[in-house]
């Protein structure tokens, strides 16, 4: 199955990817492509946009029109694409630092506007490309190359941040539960409005090594053994949720979509 997806959607000549052994990015990218395939999206009408960082290199491996943009700005580029050509499917691939630190402003405003783009947040809790600095999603107390005494920052929950900003489809997935995560991505792409799927990534090279999480298999096993459903998470206290991997839909609701609302203005004022 995987090889067929590679044949159909990947720039075969540029494989293998630059990612480290055991990196979760390849698994998440496979889920994205499987979701696209399941939905039968027209590859000629689908644009993949990414920012800067390990996971943002994902776009370049896909055989679509792909935009590998500037650090943090993928959602802003995507907004321009969708606004100018609303008929296109626009999918953003971005890491936790890219999306919630330098690009945080773009994320919350795209969510607020409810523009119909889908964001896949590859959350590995660390800046990987630059060598393991703590990110806005590094848990308090964890280590990074710029947190040698332990991180004193309070982390963001990207999914809840997006929900708070008005995202109309929010879900969380992980690297181990590929069937569930693929379905969540599929539903996100199908959703008419701003959708985001935050996927718990694994970075054995930096986050794992810095925090003694073991190798890639250990980190994947951790996801397997600590997964709870989004429904179960709702009933738990913050303390009980600590260290758990949540998989499932956080919210899904209807709200007028931005480009459709703009079309109504065009229909009203366009000089024919």
């Amino acid at each position: 199955m995987a090889s067929k997806l590679i044949e159909k959607y990947f720039r075969y000549e540029h494989l293998p990817q630059i990612w480290c052994q055991g990196c979760g990015n390849g698994i998440i990218l496979r889920d994205v492509v499987k979701a696209i395939d399941d939905l039968g999206l027209d590859v000629d009408k689908t644009v993949i946009v990414s920012g800067i960082g390990c996971s943002s290199r994902a776009a370049g491996y896909l055989n679509f029109l792909t935009l590998h943009t500037t650090h943090g700005r993928a959602v802003a580029f995507a907004t321009g694409i969708k606004m100018a050509r609303p008929e296109l499917n626009v999918i953003v691939l971005a890491g936790d630092g890219d999306l919630s630190a330098i690009g945080g402003n773009h994320l919350i405003h795209a969510a607020r506007r409810n523009i119909n783009i889908t964001v896949i947040a590859f959350n590995n809790n660390i800046y990987g490309m630059t060598g393991g600095q703590y990110s806005p999603t590094t848990p308090t107390g964890d280590y990074g190359t710029t947190a040698p005494y332990g991180n004193i920052d309070r982390p963001f929950d990207i999914a809840l941040l997006a929900k708070g900003a008005g995202a109309t489809y929010v879900a969380k997935g992980d690297c181990f539960h590929v069937v569930q995560t693929t379905k969540l991505i599929r539903d996100g792409i199908k959703h008419n409005g701003f959708s985001i799927i935050e996927v718990a990534d694994v970075c054995p090279t930096y986050y794992g090594r810095k925090n003694k999480k073991g190798n890639a298999v250990d980190m994947m096993t951790y996801q397997k053994e600590n997964m709870i459903s989004a429904e179960a998470a709702l009933a738990m206290s913050e303390e009980e949720r600590k260290g758990k991997i949540i998989v499932g839909k956080i919210c899904e609701n209807d709200y007028p979509e931005l480009t459709e609302e703009y079309q109504k203005i065009i229909d009203r004022v366009m000089v024919k």
Partner: peptide
């Protein structure tokens, strides 16, 4: 909108520049 085009007020100057590049990339 009177000529069938689109306007958007972005969240900041960086985003405005990013958005026009995105739009231009798709023609």
């Amino acid at each position: 909108p009177t000529v069938g085009g689109h306007f958007i007020q972005m969240e900041d100057e960086l985003a405005s520049m990013a958005a026009i590049i995105g739009a231009s990339c798709v023609g």
